Simulated scan of single mutants.
Amino acid sequence: MSATLSFELKRDAFGRLAFLGEDGQWHGGVVPVRAFPIAAPDHGISLMDADGHELVWIESLQQVPADARRLIEEELAGREFLPVISRIDSVSSFATPSTWQVETDRGATSFVLEGEENIRRIGQSALLIADSHGIQFLIRDLTALDRHSRKLLDRFL
């Protein structure tokens, strides 16, 4: 792993991120962007200025001092909404459209799956499911789901 990165990050008077790099210049309106938000959420993060120019590339959040890491994680959490499904409680029908009752890392919810094509494989054991409103739900690891959830999901794969 690379050495700790040297920069300062703080919130300005408007609550936006401000970046001070090695060149001694402050940049306002800084936005963190993940290169691989699903496969490697803590690796490959770019801090972009308000014009979309990269200020610094972060190989791993472990390279970032704790205070700056906390600000980056807060900003990412505020911008990204990707509930992670931990359990599938029920499915209204094995034909689509169907209503799914699920448990996520953000609580229990339901959504409508319009078609099997809205379930996409990501890697070996991850799935991305888009509901009828375009909200994406993630299943990080199929093998980590309980037997009942896997059985319901298998009907759609």
Results as ranks from 00 to 15, higher is better:
residue 124 Q to A: 11
residue 55 L to Q: 10
residue 120 R to G: 01
residue 108 A to M: 04
residue 106 R to K: 13
residue 144 A to D: 14
residue 106 R to M: 12
residue 3 A to F: 12
residue 132 S to T: 01
residue 56 V to K: 02
residue 78 G to M: 10
residue 81 F to S: 12
residue 61 L to G: 03
residue 5 L to H: 05
residue 25 Q to H: 11
residue 156 F to R: 06
residue 104 T to D: 09
residue 57 W to N: 03
residue 56 V to Y: 01
residue 55 L to S: 09
residue 14 F to D: 15
residue 26 W to F: 10
residue 44 G to E: 07
residue 101 Q to I: 03
residue 139 I to K: 06
residue 66 A to R: 11
residue 99 T to G: 00
residue 50 A to E: 15
residue 24 G to N: 11
residue 53 H to R: 08
residue 1 M to N: 12
residue 67 D to N: 07
residue 58 I to T: 06
residue 95 A to W: 14
residue 113 L to H: 01
residue 68 A to D: 08
residue 141 D to H: 13
residue 48 M to E: 12
residue 61 L to E: 11
residue 67 D to S: 09
residue 7 F to R: 07
residue 30 V to R: 11
residue 121 R to E: 07
residue 119 I to F: 07
residue 24 G to A: 10
residue 72 I to P: 03
residue 15 G to N: 10
residue 49 D to Q: 05
residue 67 D to I: 05
residue 42 D to V: 04
residue 100 W to L: 03
residue 129 I to C: 04
residue 13 A to I: 13
residue 73 E to P: 00
residue 76 L to W: 09
residue 96 T to F: 03
residue 88 I to C: 06
residue 152 L to Y: 10
residue 68 A to H: 02
residue 91 V to L: 08
residue 22 E to Q: 14
residue 50 A to T: 15
residue 30 V to D: 06
residue 118 N to S: 08
residue 103 E to P: 00
residue 120 R to E: 14
residue 97 P to W: 00
residue 88 I to Y: 05
residue 144 A to H: 12
residue 8 E to L: 05
residue 36 F to N: 07
residue 85 I to V: 15
residue 45 I to T: 14
residue 1 M to C: 05
residue 48 M to S: 05
residue 35 A to Y: 01
residue 85 I to M: 12
residue 115 G to P: 00
residue 75 E to P: 01
residue 95 A to N: 14
residue 82 L to A: 02
residue 111 F to D: 01
residue 148 H to Q: 15
residue 89 D to E: 15
residue 32 P to K: 08
residue 52 G to I: 12
residue 140 R to F: 01
residue 63 Q to Y: 04
residue 8 E to F: 08
residue 71 L to K: 07
residue 145 L to K: 03
residue 46 S to N: 12
residue 73 E to Y: 01
residue 123 G to H: 05
residue 1 M to A: 12
residue 14 F to V: 06
residue 27 H to P: 00
residue 93 S to E: 12
residue 106 R to P: 00
residue 114 E to S: 06
residue 11 R to H: 10
